[in-house]
Design a binder for these strands. Structure first.
Lengths: 224, 224
DNA sequence: CAGATTATGTCAGTCAATGACAAGTGTCAA
DNA sequence: TTGACACTTGTCATTGACTGACATAATCTG
């Protein structure tokens, strides 16, 4: 049982595997994991991330502090677990885009796909996700963790892009460049979205598109 | 005496202010600050960042642990203090570029300027800087701190760009976009540079240019 | 030199994170 | 059902980053 081994969105019943798991043990793990996340978010919202001790979270769920760290590598890790799920969604969406699309188009569409896939999941789910984003965007430490997570997983995007276009990521800089630029504008978009008060997902998508649209314009010449 | 109030490159004798400071106190502060940085880097290089306790650093300099935290907000803070200096150089360089240059050109030239300004500073200085970059690039925690620092100061670049081009950063996304993209490629460049073994500064500059050159190409169509 | 500033040391304490070992619980086959 | 085996959890002890409070000592200022 290594920390954050099995990442999964909160109460989203596993795609159902055959029979190979008599369930009780796994079910309990999932329960405590979900309970920890839920209690943590609740506390974070009230007292703020920094001022919530791990101890308080585990007390609320009635498990030992040690157990917490067997589920999550760190306090940060819990907070960004949602981001992890979103990123995984995006990666799958990107891999699924038709090869006929050029890289930028594929990335843009994949972003929308992943957003659409997670958004209507359930209203309650969306609300939770929104509160997490709000939390992350307003907590410097989590913002940094988020940044770091995105960076650590850029190479996966790079791999998919390079495969799609049949280029060698070791010599061709374009896949790395596009992957990094995607991360950048996704980040800018969620900032703008937060500044607007985290309205609906479609506003986030619109902000993303606006940034994507202006990339070449920003590089062009004078802005007059 | 708040932490990291006065950031300055290591042994670079202050631009000399009139007379208003009878010096001794300031001189001593500078001394211990430099001594802490020096001892820290030496230890980091030998034992690695994570495995060097603040206690060991302060023992080497013979000050109390508490004093360390009066000079640096955190252990990370010490390590990225060099990055701060470099960023400050870049900002000044960017502000100094002629307004006739279009934004992208100005940013690229400013990057080279700041590199040139710090590089020949002194051979020993350069060596120190290189070891810091190596350290940061090979320590996940520091990489994250670096990322965060860059992000936290994007707004300064945004401000300069917006002023240069006479646009409103609140409504026009282009300054934010270019600032973020600059950060991205500067980051990619230093990674590539590290992977090549941190050769000379000109190699870093070349990598930066290569990325800058390919930005539009990466956004264009298929890469074939 | 007196008296206001300011830096430093000491101390006690919080909080995150980890290793080691014991105790409890679930699983599976005989 | 039972008993061996695989995990999971709790307990305990420890390290290390960081902070607040207060006393002390050094450096200004006049």
């Amino acid at each position: 049982m290594n920390p954050s081994a099995a990442q999964l969105g909160p109460p989203a019943p596993e795609p159902a595997e055959g029979q190979p798991e008599p369930a009780r043990r796994e079910r309990k793990k999932r329960q405590t994991r979900d309970a920890l996340i839920l209690a943590a978010l609740k506390l974070f919202e009230v007292k703020g991330y920094e001022h919530t001790a791990v101890r308080e979270i585990t007390d609320a769920v009635d498990v030992s502090e040690r157990t917490f760290f067997r589920y999550f590598a760190s306090k940060e890790d819990l907070a960004v677990s949602f981001i992890r799920d979103r990123t995984a969604l995006f990666l799958r969406a990107l891999a699924a885009r038709p090869p006929a699309e050029d890289p930028l188009t594929a990335v843009r569409n994949a972003y929308h796909d992943s957003l659409a896939e997670s958004a209507p999941d359930s209203a309650e789910n969306m609300a939770t996700y929104l509160s997490v984003v709000r939390l992350i965007e307003s907590t410097p430490a989590l913002l940094a963790a988020n940044l770091r997570y995105l960076h650590d997983h850029d190479y996966e995007i790079v791999g998919i892009l390079a495969r799609r276009e049949g280029v060698d990521p070791a010599t061709d800089r374009r896949p790395r460049l596009l992957a990094a630029m995607f991360g950048t504008i996704a980040f800018l978009a969620s900032q703008e979205w937060r500044d607007k008060g985290c309205p609906g997902p479609e506003v986030l998508a619109a902000a993303f598109d606006a940034y994507a649209d202006q990339m070449t314009a920003a590089l062009a010449g004078h802005w007059s």
